[in-house]
Amino acid sequence: MRRHAVLWIALAVASVALSAAAAFETRANRLQAIKTVGIVSAIGEEMSLTQAGLTALGNTGQSASISAWGLDEMIVQQATKLLSGRFRVQPVSYRRAAFAAIRDSAVAPVNLLRSDPFKELVRSDVAPQGLDAYIVITRARSKLGSGRDVEGIGLVQYRTLLADYGLIHALYEVRVIDGKSFDVIEKRAAAPLDNTGTMRLAGPSGPVDETFDGPASGERLRTAIVDLVTRSLPVTLSDMHLMESQ
């Protein structure tokens, strides 16, 4: 009896291992088969302004338009440069606002069970169709402290009893969507550039210092955000096995 049980367990373990190996083959093969890609970026139209920590009751986040910064164009350019070694990158047109408007459901299981909302948008909104895959870069979300979420591009003022701290963030995630079936082949949120700060976010972020105050602070802010994206994008694409490790 015990021998039968052991045999069944061994069989189950072998089945799981084989299925997993098959799944890996599928993902790896699908990435290998991609020759032409189009890049969609929709993270840089707005910057959130958040006060966190010891804040007053009713304090809500606000936002400012940064569309003049041309962040999405810069991201497409940089991703094109990074991916050109491996793929033929073709320019695509899309409604940026439609991609920027999509949000994850607050109910976690819904996100697991429902079809990825970007699949349908790529199918209906991106031209030209027919490329092997589409690289879609959109806003990601992170916890800040305990009871607050931040997402996308933003500036945070974190208040403590004895001091205030500033933080900028560029939180984004990258999807590889199959150009024929529109399945999500791979999805990855950009990781923090370092894990050494004491105020942590689950994505690229950096401290704000006093150089962000005064004349030309907007340009400095833009430069700092661009730097976060420029340094994190190669790492993220490399983690997704879309390019060679840096």
Partner: peptide
Amino acid sequence: DEAALDRAASAQQSLLSAFLAALGAITAI
């Protein structure tokens, strides 16, 4: 320097300006 921002969103610019000014108290990290 607001020139870098979207000129069409002046209200939002002033909001960002005020926010950055508030961050002026931040010490260098």
